[in-house]
Amino acid sequence: MTSDPSPVHPQIPFSFDNTTASTFDLFWAGDNGVAIEAVEALAAGEGQDAQIFLSGSAGCGKTHLLMAACQRASATGFRIAYLSAADIQVAASLEGLEQVDLVCLDNMDQLPRQPESEEALFHFINRAREHHARLLIASRVSPVQLRIQLPDLATRLAWGASFKLAPVPEEALGELLVWRAGHLGLTLGSDEVNYLLNRFPRDPVSLLNALGTLDQASMQLQRRITTALIREVLVRSESH
């Protein structure tokens, strides 16, 4: 059980970790301070923005910010809804959502390339404006690059402030791990950090998922996180 896994390890599927909610506190701000502040204000129903569009590459934290906004708004007493644009092929999924205070539309780049989906979303944005429902939209690319066919929708997506989220630079991934571990009440030494960086895909999502699993294991086993523990957890996950 203590044998070292192969050095170039494939991405390991980890189970969902419910202990680390995607809150604003747990978002590594980096160069994204402006976007975070704007999203926080939108979630709290403050500020002048009625709509914010977040763009950025996979893993830069778009969904995290949407979830954080949902959590914050919900805790403030607002009614919220989260929807992936990939599901908008069913116009029914948008019906009545304008009654909700904050609607988060994720994965806008996956909006089905059908006139009906674009039209349904266009009508929804009109209704949302009319009802003062706030919108938080996320996509890998900016509104202009989405190449929306329906011009009425294209201009509406570009309506509010849009922010491009900067990804966590590779050289900051170690710092990110230590920072997040600190939030979880864990101490992560440089050996453990290097061990994780060398054995996991170098993207924040994989690394933070790994950390979440290690946190649970550390709690269950009542042990500190050491390279030995990481090895054991890796082996266990792999055998599952």
């Binding site: 704007a38 002048q48 569009f53 202009v144 201009t155 570009a158 509010g160 402030a161 849009s162 922010f163």
Partner: peptide, 15 residues
């Protein structure tokens, strides 16, 4: 191109 985009750019600068 249009006023919405203009408004969006201004909102970004103000933020």
């Amino acid at each position: 191109s249009n006023v919405r985009e203009l408004e969006g750019a201004l909102r970004r600068v103000i933020a």
